[in-house]
C-alpha cells in the first residue's frame, strides 16, 4: 500500500466529503492525505508532492453566490500555477459534486488542452428547485478519453445536490463536447439495456434528477485527465451502501461498484507517473 500514488484530497471551507474520498483512494491502493486548501494557497505545501488531486463534495462557502464559485475563485487566483503544472504533468484530477462545480468554475472543466482558467459552462439550480438525495443510474461513454472511467459501462450511486443542472451557452458548445467524447457520463433509465441507455433527450424527473441538458452527469477535459461529475461514486464504495443490499442474500464482498473509478486513477498513476 505504502508505495501507491499519493493523493491530495482537499478540505476546508465547507468541503464535506473529504474523509470518505480519502478512504476510497486508500482502498483502491493509493496513499491519500487530506490537505487544507490554504496549505496550497499559502505555499507551505505544493501540489507537485502528489500524483492525484481530488476536490471532494460539500458546500464550500455555503454555495452562496453559486455552488463552488468562491472556492473556484480561490483556486483560480491563488493556485493557478500549481494547478497548471499539475495538469501539464499529466496527473489526474477529479471533482465530485461540489468539487465538480469548483472545477467548472475555475475553468478546468470542460477546459482546454492547456488550461486557460476560463469558465465555459455552469452548474445551476435543479429544475425541481430542491436539493435532493437519491440514487441514479449512470452510463459511460466507452469512447471517452477519460482515464477515470475506463471499462465502466454502468453504475448506480447517489446524487446529493441542489445545483446539478449542467448548462453551456449554446447547443453547439455541447455538440463540440460530444464530438470530443468529453461527455463522460449521463443519467440513464435503469430499465434500458446496459450500454444502450445514453440519450440526448432529457429524461423525466427523477431519472434525470436535475433536468441537466442531454442528461449530462459528468464531463472531462480534452486530455481525459480532469474529470468531474455530480453523482457520488465514493458513496457506492461498498455493497452494503446500495439501497437494495437487503433484497437478496447477504453479499460477503464488501467493495462495491463505485470503486472502479478510483482504481482506474490509481492504476493510471502507477503506470504513467
Amino acid at each position: 500500500m505504502s508505495d501507491g500514488p499519493k493523493v491530495a484530497v482537499l478540505f476546508g471551507f465547507g468541503i464535506n466529503c473529504d474523509r470518505e474520498t480519502a478512504a476510497v483512494f486508500d482502498l483502491a491502493g493509493g496513499v491519500s492525505e487530506r490537505v487544507h486548501v490554504n496549505h496550497f494557497v499559502n505555499g507551505d505545501r505544493d501540489l507537485s508532492e502528489f500524483q492525484i488531486l481530488a476536490v471532494p463534495g460539500g458546500f464550500s462557502f455555503g454555495d452562496h453566490l453559486g455552488s463552488g464559485r468562491l472556492l473556484g475563485n480561490r483556486m483560480r487566483f491563488a493556485m493557478r500555477e500549481q494547478l497548471s503544472a499539475f495538469v501539464a504533468a499529466g496527473k489526474p484530477v477529479i471533482g465530485i459534486c461540489n468539487g465538480f462545480q469548483v472545477l467548472v468554475k475555475t475553468g478546468l472543466l470542460p477546459g482546454k488542452e492547456v488550461p486557460d482558467f476560463e469558465q465555459r459552462a455552469s452548474l445551476t439550480l435543479n429544475n425541481s428547485g430542491r436539493y435532493e438525495d437519491r440514487w441514479v443510474t449512470l452510463e459511460f461513454d466507452p469512447e471517452s478519453p477519460c482515464i477515470w472511467t475506463k471499462g465502466i459501462t454502468r453504475i448506480e450511486c447517489p446524487v446529493r445536490h441542489g445545483e446539478g443542472r449542467f448548462v453551456m451557452p449554446s447547443s453547439s458548445d455541447l455538440d463540440e463536447l460530444d464530438e470530443n467524447n468529453q461527455i463522460v457520463t449521463r443519467y440513464v433509465d435503469p430499465s434500458t439495456e446496459p450500454g444502450k441507455g445514453i440519450t440526448d433527450e432529457t429524461l423525466p424527473f427523477p431519472l434525470c434528477p436535475n433536468g441537466s441538458i442531454r442528461n449530462i452527469a459528468g464531463i472531462c477535459d480534452p486530455t481525459g485527465l480532469v474529470f468531474g461529475l455530480m453523482p457520488h461514486p465514493e458513496a457506492a464504495y461498498a455493497t452494503f451502501l446500495h439501497p437494495h443490499h437487503t433484497r437478496g442474500e447477504v453479499n460477503e464482498e464488501i467493495l462495491g461498484e463505485g470503486m472502479q473509478i478510483f482504481r482506474n486513477a490509481v492504476d493510471y498513476a502507477r503506470a504513467n507517473l
Binding site: 436539493y131 446529493r160 451502501l241
Partner: peptide, 10 residues
Amino acid sequence: RQYDHEVIAQ
C-alpha cells in the same frame, strides 16, 4: 429526501 442522508458514505 431533501436531507442529505448519506454523506460520509456510511
